[in-house]
Structure formats: structure tokens, C-alpha cells
């Protein structure tokens, strides 16, 4: 009942409580979020999930000028003591960079701004003609950044800014799921990056739909998942036009430009959502042919490719989840 009362007080958060699956939908990090626990009503932390995301966003957002990340990006050649949250996300970003051989890196801040993604996507104009100053370097590896674990300090060299992007969202979904799972089987969906704690209360897997990029109101496939992470990357949503050229938010670190690829979207199932997010982005950049080789070389990963022409390609392991 406490949850229901909480729901009544928080109509703006679209609280929706059900007999078995308790769900909470809200907006954070520029995305629609969902947190769910598969149990009947009881003392819950579910209503506190938006507060967690607000706290994390205040640390990790590059669009908030008073965020911890924004302050860090303004200080170069000096060690900066950072919060545990920022430190953890930085480590997650470093793992993603290592796993993808540098394809997914948070050091592309200048490139993504140059492409036109310089404000939250909600308020980003769909067409611009502004021509910014050219960026001298596309990306630099995270190894160029000096770290000191004992003091939890980060020293950014000149010319490097951080944008955690999808890594931060995946990390937040994973953290929220870990906190919720003590109360029951939990699922957190952060704008498409989904963390799942394990089977549902009745022992069955969770059914997760994959949105059809051509018909966003429909699902193109349904997966049955237990403990794992699932994420989708693509150019079907966060895109805009600059100087008449279509841009999107996934930057190829080797060109410093939005990745040119034959893929429209890539959905990846991985042991956790952070790996799924990084893998989906890497495959998207690699393109269909090389991406297929990449996914088949990683036996713990499964993927669904959707090409520009609508063709779908399933990795072998994905059949386990159909």
C-alpha cells in the first residue's frame, strides 16, 4: 500500500503498480526509463530509483555545466579527485575500450560536438548549418589519461574531454538492477539498455521485445532472457542533419565522424548490460560483415543485425533466446 500511496503522490513519474510485476516508469538521462521488480506489493525501494538516476546524472552528464564530469573536462594537466561513481564509470569505459579494441571510447567529446550533438537530444535542432572549427584529433586512448587509484584521481591531458554516453547509461541500469534484486527478480531499462538480474519469480525468463526500427510501434523480435544485459545501438533514432548531411551519434574513433555502416541497428545480448552496450556500438561501427566475425568470435555474446535494406541477421547464439 505504501507503494500505491507513493504512486499517487508521484503522478508525474507515471508510477504504475501491478499485482505481480511492479513497474516504475520515469524520465532521466534524456531517455525513458523503466524499473521493475517481479514480486507482490511490499516494502520497496522502487520509488527511489529516479533519485538514484538523478544523482548519477548530476555526476555523469556532459550537458549539465555543473556536473562533476563537466568540471573535470575543464581541468587539464592537474590531478582531480573524483567521486566513486565517476571512478567506477571511468573503469567501465576503460573495459569497454579494451574489449572493443578502441572502437568504443569516451574520448570523442570534441568529435561528437563537432558532429552537432552539443546539447540534449530533446532540444537538438534537426537541421543546422553551423560550421564549427575543425577538430585536430579524432580520439585518443584512455591510456593517455593518468590515473591514481589510491587517491582516486584523474589527470586529463590537454585536448581530451570525456563523454561517457551509453557507458554511463548501461552502468546506471546495472547499478539500479543490483540494488533492486535484493527484493526480488529485477529489471531496469535505461532507454533501451536493459539489465536483468535473473529469472522471474515463477522461474520463467523475461520476455524482451526488440523494437522494429522501421515501425517503432512494433516489435520485430521477442527474446526470452534470464540474467544478462541487452542493448541496441543504431542510427534510426538519434540522428539529425548538418549542412545537408545526415549525422548520428555513434562516432567512428578512427575518422572522428559519424560511423559509415551498412547496419541500421544492432542488438546484443551479453553477460551484463555494459558489455552489451559496448559490443552493440562496436559492431555498428564495424559494419555487417566484420561485425558478424566479431560476434561469432565472442561466444558469450549474441546479436541481431538489422541492415539498412531491412535484412535481418541472427548470430548463432541468439537462437537460444528465441
Amino acid at each position: 500500500m505504501a507503494v500505491v500511496e507513493e504512486a499517487d503522490q508521484s503522478q508525474s513519474l507515471k508510477h504504475r503498480v501491478h499485482k505481480m510485476l511492479q513497474r516504475l516508469e520515469f524520465h532521466a538521462m534524456g531517455c525513458e526509463m523503466l524499473a521493475a521488480i517481479d514480486r507482490e506489493a511490499g516494502p520497496l525501494t522502487l520509488p527511489h530509483v529516479p533519485e538514484w538516476f538523478e544523482e548519477w546524472e548530476q555526476v555523469l552528464s556532459r550537458f549539465r555545466y555543473d556536473s562533476e564530469l563537466a568540471r573535470l573536462n575543464q581541468i587539464h594537466e592537474q590531478p582531480v579527485h573524483v567521486s566513486e561513481t565517476l571512478w567506477d564509470v571511468f573503469r567501465a569505459a576503460r573495459k569497454a575500450e579494451q574489449m572493443t579494441d578502441g572502437l568504443v571510447t569516451p574520448t570523442l567529446l570534441d568529435a561528437i560536438i563537432e558532429a552537432g550533438y552539443d546539447r540534449p537530444f530533446d532540444v537538438l535542432p534537426h537541421q543546422t548549418t553551423f560550421i564549427p572549427a575543425p577538430v585536430m584529433t579524432a580520439s585518443r586512448p584512455l591510456t593517455a589519461i593518468a590515473l591514481k587509484a589510491s587517491t582516486r584521481t584523474i589527470t586529463l591531458p590537454f585536448g581530451i574531454g570525456l563523454d561517457f554516453g551509453g557507458v554511463a547509461k548501461g552502468w546506471a541500469a546495472h547499478q539500479a538492477m543490483k540494488r533492486l534484486q535484493v527484493e526480488g527478480p529485477a529489471l531496469v531499462n535505461a532507454g533501451g539498455d536493459i539489465a536483468i538480474s535473473g529469472p522471474r519469480a515463477d522461474g520463467n525468463p523475461w520476455q524482451i521485445g526488440i523494437t522494429d526500427p522501421f515501425y517503432p510501434d512494433e516489435e520485430i523480435e521477442t527474446l526470452h532472457l534470464n540474467a544478462c544485459g541487452i542493448a541496441t545501438s543504431g542510427k534510426d533514432r538519434r540522428r539529425w542533419t548538418r549542412n545537408g548531411i545526415l549525422q548520428h551519434h555513434i562516432i567512428d574513433p578512427f575518422t572522428g565522424q559519424p560511423a559509415e555502416t551498412d547496419l541500421l541497428t544492432v542488438t546484443v545480448v551479453a553477460p551484463n548490460v555494459m558489455e552489451a552496450e559496448a559490443a552493440a556500438k562496436a559492431i555498428f561501427i564495424l559494419g555487417g560483415r566484420v561485425g558478424l566475425e566479431w560476434i561469432e568470435a565472442h561466444p558469450n555474446f549474441a546479436a541481431l543485425f538489422i541492415f539498412d535494406n531491412g535484412q535481418m541477421l541472427y548470430s548463432r547464439k541468439l537462437e537460444e533466446y528465441l
Partner: peptide, 11 residues
């Protein structure tokens, strides 16, 4: 019939 709990989409 059963329906999906939620969906993944480009983030």
C-alpha cells in the same frame, strides 16, 4: 498470449 515486459531500442 504473453507479451514483452519491455523493449530494447537504439539508445
Amino acid at each position: 498470449g504473453p507479451v514483452s515486459v519491455t523493449q530494447t531500442q537504439s539508445s
